[in-house]
Amino acid sequence: MAHLLCFSRCRTTAVEELSPQRLRSTCHLIDHRLEARVWIEVPLPGLEIEAVGCRLERGLEEVAEQAEARLQKVRGVRVGPGLRKILPGLIGRRPPWDELAFMVEECCQGVILTLTRRELARAPLQPEDSREHFAEMVRKNIRLYNRCAAFAPGSSLVEGLEPPQADGSA
């Protein structure tokens, strides 16, 4: 029996450095139903979305005009905490707007991971050397504590660290 795919999707997020002070993040979606591209531009260091746009190529043509208007609502939103709540709240929570909101979120994640990549480029390659590097990263940004399995109690990376603000020292 041929195991044919009944649904398939590719999603790519690419972040381009337009200048040392400006990033453009583009999310391109192509699946059996849709093809669309959404992009944002953010300045550094402010990270507030200054420009946003889309090209809806297949499956969303009927809503193209509305989509453009809805996307403009995210101008001024800062790439940072709370995006999963803010973006659907501004763009829409139901199909097809939820997909557009998610594409903007993916663009924002791309910006965040671009900054993360820069930080990680300094981490030593060998596990025994990198352990202290990551432990120091959690000490410096205590909010990372317990944010994932690697930084949860029991991990060697958080040995000896107190939970955030337990002593009111923040």
Partner: peptide, 21 residues
């Protein structure tokens, strides 16, 4: 110059029991 690139690929099939994989 790209500063970062992420690709995601998902394929869905059905198994003999009808489950979606």
């Amino acid at each position: 110059m790209l500063a970062y690139l992420r690709s995601k690929r998902v394929g869905v099939t059905r198994d003999e029991e009808g489950r979606y994989l």
